[in-house]
């Protein structure tokens, strides 16, 4: 579905030299995620400004003592909007990953464990989903579902289904062919017992790491769709939408686009780092 899919996760390789660089940053990544999660849960604990109603007298102020990250054209505090926007992004990403993970797992496990024509039909369906670029697929779904936060999250989730399904299918097939699964049948295990005891736990570990990376990807997608104006309507504080609104003032007020972008990057980078760490841990 996306290029990131092709990068992930793989079994039993030698330690990739590249990722060593990220390792000292893992603590930092966890810290970033913790802060953003707290923003989403208790936004008013971090700022006293109102994210929606501004002070017209304060409009377009550069970062300073009053507004740490500046203020926008309606005099709203940028930091406050970023803090309140965390909920939009994180909740949206949670919904998207949940949709992708649940539908994808169902399809993947079904295809991998049942086999036969069911497997073939599901694999062809995955092929079809994969042949449509992710963004276009979510655009098509948005046309049908309409604009809005939930709609965008679901649309992003549906585009993630194929990736999850294919990964889980491949994992289930690999596990199913392993000696220990054959040994479990050989020692008298019934189909569902073996599926439950051996196939699912082993197949789902790498899926967990994939879900973490998919979470970062979903945040990116949601911010892109928000930027294009299909997500939450103004004046909702949403990171992508903030950048879209800030565009109109980019000649003069650089902080309106710079800071939301940095927050998105930091969050996505942190989830990716955690996802990669998980992948390594699980192998």
């Amino acid at each position: 579905m996306t290029l990131q899919d092709t990068l992930l996760p793989r079994r039993s390789r030698t330690l990739p030299r590249l990722h060593v660089a990220i390792r000292p940053g893992l603590a930092l990544a966890v810290a970033v995620l913790a802060v953003v999660t707290l923003w989403a849960m208790l936004p008013s604990a971090f700022t006293s400004f109102n994210p929606v109603a501004g002070l017209p007298a304060d409009k377009l102020q550069a970062p300073g003592a009053a507004h740490w990250l500046g203020s926008d054209e309606l005099g709203r505090d940028v930091l406050a909007r970023l803090i309140f926007g965390a909920r939009q992004s994180l909740a949206g990403a949670v919904v998207a990953v949940a949709v992708g993970l649940s539908v994808g797992s169902l399809l993947g496990v079904l295809a991998g464990s049942v086999g036969g024509w069911v497997e073939q039909a599901i694999l062809r369906l995955i092929d079809v989903l994969l042949s449509i670029p992710a963004l276009l697929l979510s655009l098509a779904l948005i046309v049908i579902l309409g604009f809005g936060t939930v709609q965008v999250a679901v649309a992003v989730g549906v585009t993630a289904v194929a990736g999850f399904a294919r990964l889980i299918w491949a994992e289930v097939v690999t596990v199913r062919r392993s000696d220990y699964v054959e040994a479990a049948f050989g020692s008298g295990g019934r189909f569902f017992a073996v599926l439950w005891r051996h196939v699912l736990p082993n197949a789902l570990t790498s899926v967990l790491a994939y879900a973490a990376i998919q979470f970062g990807w979903a945040i990116l997608q949601i911010s892109t769709l928000g930027f294009l104006g299909y997500g939450a309507p103004p004046p909702t504080p949403e990171w992508g939408l903030m950048i879209a609104e800030g565009r109109n003032y980019m000649t003069t007020s650089w902080w309106l686009t710079l800071f939301p972008g940095l927050v998105v990057i930091a969050t996505v980078l942190a989830t990716n780092a955690v996802g990669h760490a998980l992948t390594r841990r699980l192998q």
């Binding site: 290029l3 990131q4 970062g216 990116l220 911010s223 892109t224 930027f227 992508g240 950048i243 879209a244 686009t257 939301p260 972008g261 998105v264 990057i265 996505v268 980078l269 990716n272």
Partner: peptide, 9 residues
């Protein structure tokens, strides 16, 4: 780092 950056930004 580069994969984590939104295109529009």
């Amino acid at each position: 780092l580069m994969v984590s950056v939104p295109v529009f930004w």
